[in-house]
Design a protein around this nucleic acid. Sequence first.
DNA 1: ATATAATTTAGATAGTTGGCTAAATATCTA
DNA 2: TAGATATTTAGCCAACTATCTAAATTATAT
Lengths: 87, 87
Amino acid sequence: MTLSKTMQALSDPTRRKILEMLKKKDMAAGEIGRNFNMTLPSLSHHLNTLKQADLVISERSGQEIIYSLNLSVFEEVAKNLIKFFKK
Amino acid sequence: MTLSKTMQALSDPTRRKILEMLKKKDMAAGEIGRNFNMTLPSLSHHLNTLKQADLVISERSGQEIIYSLNLSVFEEVAKNLIKFFKK
DNA sequence: ATATAATTTAGATAGTTGGCTAAATATCTA
DNA sequence: TAGATATTTAGCCAACTATCTAAATTATAT
């Protein structure tokens, strides 16, 4: 987990919105996609970026692939950011 | 102040290092530049990005232009981030 | 085995970013 | 006013990003 990758991932509004959704509940890629005006391949690319940044994890369940927050990393990032912003 | 702009600004290691330096003390552009292996125009571009994101402010003092943290925004960003990361 | 559904991968393209050099601007000093 | 110093602006280029369409992959159902 590098802060650069995390920040880069967080710099896109679509990706932040995805994370906000996953805070509420785990979701399949298609279900996430329905909330955006964007093709599924584009959405999939964003999901991959979030995965590369370790912010989310994914698991296949039948035909679907369920995405969820990677809570431990999410918390670690929060701590780093708070430290960074502490004057 | 938009979170996107802020995150985007923070996604670059050079810019984060500049902010870390400015946490310690206000500095002129050239002085900041001496800490990086990069031309001054490139550095100036990063400073401008930070300024556009409202993370720093600049003020001329004679021949120099002194950069400093925009503390109020810095604090506001911290709050937003904490809120974002609160599950 | 075939068709359907969910998702990802591949390949193309337009736009953005981060670096450079050269030129311009602003200030100070002689 | 001329020269030196500090910084920014302009213009260029290579690398990266976000999007798309089309094709491939994986799993379920008939």
